[in-house]
């Protein structure tokens, strides 16, 4: 029992729109939150600009607890919290919540790693000019690490497209939901092929934009 493509195209376009919406909202929220956690992690580590062992240990442990959990398990495990925060456990909005939680800690690690890669000499130079720790992080470290950070965010963006498809299989909207309900449960190979193709195109576009932006920032 295959779908009527003359009508089904509309569903594909709508689902693609939902996926793009889910992914972009998640990226925006997790970028802001992950940046904050990542900066805190960088600043509080031993020898950092604002060393604090307790804060660092808590954040570090939290990240290491969340990150190894498979996303499909995280969605289910977080569902009571999702219902509390979003009001429902199914649909596009409900999928966004666990995506933001998981992505935030991924972004935090990416931010920490890239800030650590910045030459400590420029930090010392800024200190010698009388810059405060917060000022150093915001006006030296982040700009100096921006190129690699953009590539890191692009990596996260691609991972989010994958996450959104997984979220679709358990009641979230988007292309993943379409693939599950029509392609998998109704054995329609053509739907499967089209949805996978849509995901591939989305990933290509995301990576291309990320690379262009990073190249502009790095001037190479």
């Amino acid at each position: 029992m295959s779908v009527d493509w003359n009508e089904f195209w509309v569903k594909v376009v709508d689902a693609t729109g939902e996926t793009v919406y889910m992914v972009l909202i998640t990226l925006a929220l997790s970028a802001v939150l992950g940046m904050a956690v990542g900066l805190a992690l960088y600043a509080t580590r031993k020898g950092g600009v604002l060393p604090n062992r307790v804060v660092y240990a808590v954040l570090n442990a939290l990240i290491n607890v969340i990150r190894p959990v498979p996303f499909i398990i995280a969605i289910v495990a977080l569902s009571p919290v999702t219902r509390g925060v979003v009001g429902t456990m199914i649909g596009t909005e409900a999928a966004i919540f666990p995506m933001v939680v998981v992505a935030t800690f991924g972004v935090a690690r990416i931010v920490e790693t890239n800030l650590l890669a910045v030459d400590t000499g420029v930090v010392e130079a800024a200190r010698s000019m009388g810059a405060s720790p917060l000022r150093i992080v915001l006006t030296v470290l982040v700009p100096e690490a921006l190129g690699p950070l953009v590539l890191g965010f692009t990596f996260m963006l691609v991972a989010l497209i994958d996450f959104s498809a997984v979220a679709g299989t358990v009641g979230g909207g988007g292309v993943g939901n379409l693939a599950m309900t029509y392609g998998y449960l109704r054995f329609d190979t053509s739907v499967m092929v089209v949805t996978v193709a849509v995901l591939i195109v989305l990933v290509q576009i995301a990576q291309l934009l990320g690379n262009l932006l990073a190249r502009k920032i790095l001037r190479r």
């Binding site: 030459d119 000499g121 420029v122 010392e124 130079a125 030296v140 700009p143 100096e144």
Partner: peptide, 8 residues
């Protein structure tokens, strides 16, 4: 090693 800001 100069320690100039590459981003500026």
């Amino acid at each position: 090693q100069f320690h100039l800001f590459r981003s500026r």
